[in-house]
Design a protein around this nucleic acid. Structure first.
Lengths: 168, 168
DNA sequence: TGTTTTTATCTCAACGTTGAGATTATCAAG
DNA sequence: CTTGATAATCTCAACGTTGAGATAAAAACA
């Protein structure tokens, strides 16, 4: 069988046979990018059902899995989410307006602000995360579990090689 | 070894041991999303070196690999790029201003407009695509070719299962 | 033929992100 | 202390995308 990336590489083979040897990374990266789009769209819809944006959902789960007291600095989100400071400020602003999180200044360093999950934020996170996982499972319903595991293992190796070893 | 996704799942195991069983899709999808970000940023930088946006580069290569006469309709880009019509109109507007492509109305159907790669567009595409592939190879320089191939194979299977089998 | 439906593209306001710069606080020397 | 450098967050204009609606042409139907 063949997928969209096979078709793309097939086109290159016709048009630029001289570069075919250099297309092997596309076999991996092309598929990662296409899958990322599909997953993103699906995850976005699942989050929207609970009234939160994709990025906001990311903040919620990051807070939730950090454990008690469900509090992180803005800087922690920047590193965890791979986005810029402006995006985080914007996200927190909107989430604060929705009552999902609250900004608290505590501790000795008064430059840092801490983002704390509210009770309402907890409830939304629980419900949205359950739907999120159900959606993920649904997407992979027809894929062999063994293929999922082995492919994930390969991607882990690539991530490690690229230095993505921390979420702090 | 462990990567960022392992760390995330480790946190969930502590905070929500009840959902650990449902986290296996995260092993795959989480890594796809993180890798997509890394690849995107790198590819964006490579394209920017040639004065084109990421999405514009996508249009250029789609045209190039389509072969002579290097002409496609706007609708073809919408399907190939997985973006909305507004995004394509915007891209073509800017690329036309840069002299990379030109809109031509030819054929019997006067609703469709065709986007044609200009000579300048050809040159930019050639140079940018060479850098793009070099950048891809660089990212995977320290990864076993066998791992790349096997992982790509697994992703192909997932894409097929999700129905992503066409680029038209 | 005239009418409706469908198709292809464009318009445009709203949205989230970027990225550079500003602000404010802490740390390190002297 | 004071000065300079570093760090954390916020500000804001610019940017690309979305998504609903508009426009216009073609196809389907009556």
């Amino acid at each position: 069988m063949s997928d969209a990336v096979d078709a793309i590489i097939g086109q290159w083979s016709e048009e630029r046979p001289d570069v075919v040897e250099d297309l092997w990374p596309v076999q991996l990266f092309g598929r990662i990018q296409r899958l990322a789009r599909v997953i993103d769209k699906s995850a976005k819809a699942a989050a929207a059902a609970h009234g939160v944006e994709h990025g906001e959902f990311d903040v919620l789960t990051t807070l939730q899995r950090s454990g008690p007291p469900y509090t992180l600095t803005a800087g922690a989100f920047i590193k965890a989410s791979m986005v810029t400071s402006g995006a985080i400020t914007n996200r927190i602003d909107k989430m604060e307006a929705k009552g999902l999180v609250e900004r608290v200044r505590e501790g000795d360093d008064r430059r840092t602000i801490k983002i704390r999950l509210t009770e309402h934020g907890h409830e939304v996170t629980r419900a949205a995360f359950a739907d999120h996982l159900a959606n993920y499972a649904q997407l992979l319903a027809d894929v062999d579990r063994d293929v999922v595991d082995k492919t994930a293992e390969g991607l882990r190796h690539v991530l490690e090689t690229l230095g993505d070893t921390t979420i702090k």
